[in-house]
Design a protein around this nucleic acid. Sequence first.
RNA 1: GCUCGAGUGGCGGAACUGGCAGACGCCCGGGACUUAAAAUCCCGUGUCCCUUAAAGACGUACCGGUUCGAUUCCGGUCUCGAGCACCA
Length: 804
Amino acid sequence: MDYDFHKIQDKWQKYWDDNKTFAASDDFSKKKFYALVEFPYPSGQGLHVGHPRSYTALDIVARKRRLEGYNVLYPMGWDAFGLPAENYAIANHIHPRIITEKNIANFKRQLKSIGFSFDWDREVNTTDENYYKWTQWIFLKLFEKGLAYKQEMPINWCTSCKVGLANEEVVGGKCERCGGEVVQKRKSQWMLRITEYAQRLIDDLKDLDFIEKVKVSQVNWIGRSEGAEVDFVLAGTDRKITVYTTRPDTLFGATYMVLSPEHPLIDELSDKITNLDAVREYQTQAAKKSEFERTEMAKDKTGVVLHGIKAVNPVNGTEIPIWISDYVLMTYGTGAIMAVPAHDERDWDFAKKFGLPIIEVVAGAEKDVNEEAYTNVSSGVMVNSGFLTGLKVKDAIAKMIDYLEEKGIGKRKVNFKLRDWVFSRQRYWGEPIPLVWCEKCGWVPIPESELPLTLPEVEDFTPGDEGESPLSKATDWINTTCPHCGGPAKRETDTMPQWAGSSWYFLRYIDPHNNDALASEEKLNYWLPVDWYNGGMEHTTLHLLYSRFWHKFLYDIGVVKTPEPYAKRTSHGMILGENNEKMSKSRGNVVNPDDVVDQFGADTFRTYEMFIGAFDQSTPWSENGVRGCHKFMERVWNLQDMIIDDEGYRADFENAMHKTIKKVTDDIERMKFNTAIAAMMSLVNDLYKAGGVTRGELKTLLILLNPTAPHMTEEMWQNLGFGGYVHEAKWPEYDEDKTRDDEIEIVIQINGKIRGKLSVPAGLDRDALSKLALESEEGKAAVGDKNVVKVIAVPDKLVNIVVK
RNA sequence: GCUCGAGUGGCGGAACUGGCAGACGCCCGGGACUUAAAAUCCCGUGUCCCUUAAAGACGUACCGGUUCGAUUCCGGUCUCGAGCACCA
């Protein structure tokens, strides 16, 4: 029989579609399994071969769970707001919706051609107004609870396009589109207080089954640090400057202070500063620098000292100078630091450049502190530090904080690197922010009954000259009345970032057509949490963190009952081009999934995607590898014509069958898809060597292979008349005893080198094994006339004879 | 600079808690079938020594250590990849 994969996959894809084979049921009595993959941005390039790596992996898990009797939810949708569609709209004067719809249709066709078992009735689209109605609803709740607020923030501004840019549009300090200069411009932006959740976002990771590197990067990104805030008094006044430090132990070594150039104190004290011109000049220069320049110039410290004022070191009364420098960031801590050049590299660089004193307060360094800063916390001992002298650093930190709190000049303080989420975009293609500005009432939310607040139709998608959102041109839409006082009001013209819609989409899949709530309570309680979520490492610190934050918020207001959205998170590696470089048009190494499916079929494509290499590692594409998998498909297909007359497992295949079931079962759970497939290949090789297969053996093989190659296994199941459909079969079980061999070949080593092999019954204990080995021909030959010093026997593995 | 990951045949990769390194696939070589080729099936395939085989030696980035035994554990070095990057 010919393996006509086109015919086979068309037939079964149609069957699954028509019969809604993979629809999740809302029968709450069943045990559930919620498998989730990151929904794609439907780009104009279509599906990349990287997408199906993740989708096939969880498709295999989902299909296996169904065979194990679970009620499985495995959904798909579209993260469809975003920049490329908007840029395309600007360039071609076409509404972004049109291009988005076209791209979605293409993506959907491609996904269907690969045979994923998605429940297409639950498809969601973030740009659908019935979807973003609930994105807006969540925003209103955040606003209501004080977690959304407006603040002036610097944005990336292209001086040539006159448009605000996302960070990913700034390449090497230039505008990605026109190459123009990018500077920082201050704009009033909506912000979300994710920092309120910082501690919980760290703490709750503990109980989650996330791969370790995801946990580590989230913790690092949130960047918790413990230290103290300390007040320094301005000499001759009672005005204080508060600094944040993680090393209060080094306070005796603080020889100067540094304020960020944006620090408000500079304005306050302007009448006291005698070199105000130089200070103003430095502030202007710093403001002009882009984020890029500020970090690029990192090594070369700059700064200006404030003449006319001094600060007093609170522990020793020394008057120290105050500087401003852009190495101190206004956005972290208090925007001011105490500088301890002996024990901080940055302060050391700065002190060296400007000739400031360096005082050692922690001893134990290999080099003199005038040569290099000594920053080791674990092994130093305090010197030149008054009441701290002689203490270890750790103890000195504790004692200093106690002292500061006692004297009322400082306190213990925890800081986070994580900053609040800039939630505004001056863009058209995003969810409108459902607030209006009223001169009398301030920012007022629109009533829930008016949701969704839909995007107005506009002619022109280009931003305004000052970087306003394109929505600012929709004057009819903007001018409205205040829901609170009824007076005239204007709508917010900023839209939400792409991260908004993806922060809660997994909830909408649970009940996608609900018009009264984002999802019904009952269904949320049944399906949550997501049991297994797979996605890229690039989403670890943004999407994954944002969605955990929103979920925790929804938990706090009682919408969901689980404090965390995802029980388990795994991550796939990248698929590279054949030349081991990242796939890209310019490198000419892009593989189009359509071509592979067309030439070799969906089953081969899926199998190869899983066989390509270790799932979590990046690995190059290989067309020869695809051919190898295709050959495997054909070899399995041809087993239909090799049936030998026997129903169950043949005696000499019993062991192999049970071993294969165990291997495939375990390996799928561990995401070792490549070795699961290798095990099935080995079994097939053995069947060929044996000259045929029994119906019982083939039946088991078809079920094991079904999650990976669903089309072919359905067809064969039907051809062979096994009854019903393979997707309704029961996942095979193995008997642990039958996976073991009766006879085992053990290795005989002399002094750790292999000198022979011996076949022995399985399960022999150490003594019996040693005896057998020493008495065996192989053993005697190996020992020869040397003295046996020691014998190490490992049951079922080896005997190592140590001789002299 | 910091954090994380990785380095194994010609190539992609196996090796669960230290126990036969190289499963499985690709490439390559040989054979069967065929008028022939393709496809298919079977066999071989880490390196060195060698006509071949046996036997032996070497071999998991590099140097050292622990151990009867190390791809696996420990210390150090190098290379590559990803992310973060003046966070006081």
